[in-house]
Amino acid sequence: MIGTPHHRWLRALPALVLLGDAVMSFRPPVFIQRCLDGVRLPRDWWWALIAVELLAAAGPVAGLRYPGVAFTTNIAVVGYFLCAAYAHMRARFLKQEFRLNRLGMPTFSVAVLVVSYAV
């Protein structure tokens, strides 16, 4: 069944990473501020990213009880990070923050998805 991962403990990794990112975004460090300013996201909209990341972190946690939710959330998280990478490319903000965050996070999310369900 696609909703049941081979490695249950992997469901916690994306939740922890997204939760950490959301918590850091409450008082964003300089590299997150540069990232958001680089894509010209207005500061009064930064709260929306925190809400999205908290909801995305809740998905894998809910997936502990309902396995299909974890799979769906993992797919959505990959899409979220790909959209963020596209926003960076469109704004031509391809500095170190882009390479570390916007290429590393989709790679991490895809790796968790593959190892959890395909291997």
Rank of each mutant, 00 (worst) to 15 (best):
Leu113Pro: 02
Leu41Pro: 07
Val77His: 07
Leu113Phe: 06
Pro29Trp: 03
Gln33Ser: 08
Cys83Ser: 13
Ala12Pro: 01
Ala87Met: 10
Pro106Val: 04
Gly104Tyr: 06
Ala76Glu: 06
Ala22Phe: 04
Ala22Pro: 01
Tyr117Pro: 01
Asn74Cys: 14
Leu18Arg: 04
Val110Trp: 01
Val115Lys: 08
Gly3Ala: 07
Leu64Trp: 09
Arg11Gln: 13
Ala76Arg: 01
Leu19His: 02
Ala111Lys: 10
Phe98His: 00
Leu82Glu: 05
Gly104Val: 05
Gln96Val: 10
Leu54Arg: 03
Ala22Ile: 04
Ala84Pro: 09
Cys83Thr: 12
Arg65Pro: 11
Phe26Asn: 07
Asn74Trp: 09
Val52Thr: 14
Ile32Cys: 13
Tyr86Glu: 13
Ala85Leu: 05
Pro5Ala: 04
Ala85Glu: 02
Val39Pro: 00
Ala76Ile: 05
Val30Glu: 14
Arg27Glu: 14
Ala111Leu: 15
Leu64Pro: 08
Leu18Val: 05
Val52Gly: 13
Leu16Ala: 08
Ala58His: 06
Gly63Trp: 00
Val23Ser: 09
Met1Gly: 15
Glu97Met: 04
Ala118Ser: 15
Leu64Ala: 14
Val17His: 06
Phe108Lys: 06
Val61Cys: 14
Leu94Asn: 03
Ser25Tyr: 04
Arg40Trp: 10
Ala84Met: 13
Ala62Ser: 07
Glu97His: 02
Arg11Val: 09
Arg27Lys: 14
Val110Leu: 12
Gln33Trp: 09
Leu113Met: 08
Asn101Asp: 12
Arg43Trp: 12
Gly104Leu: 05
Ala91Thr: 03
Tyr117Arg: 04
Phe98Lys: 00
Gly79Thr: 10
Ile32Lys: 14
Lys95Tyr: 09
Pro106Lys: 03
Leu18Ala: 06
Trp45Met: 15
Ala15Thr: 02
His88Gly: 04
His88Ile: 00
Ala12Lys: 01
Leu18Cys: 05
Val39Arg: 00
Leu94Tyr: 05
Arg43Ile: 09
His7Leu: 11
Ser25Ile: 05
Gly104Gln: 06
Ser109Asn: 03
Cys83Ala: 15
Met89Thr: 12
Tyr66Met: 12
Val77Ala: 13
Met89Cys: 15
Phe31Gly: 09
Tyr117Glu: 02
Ile32Asn: 11
Val52Ala: 15
Leu54Ile: 06
Ala62Asn: 04
Thr4Trp: 13
Gln33Ala: 11
Val52Met: 10
Leu54Ser: 04
Leu82Met: 10
Val78Cys: 06
Arg8Val: 08
Asp37Glu: 12
Tyr86Ala: 15
Arg90Val: 12
Leu55Trp: 08
Met105Phe: 04
Ala87Glu: 07
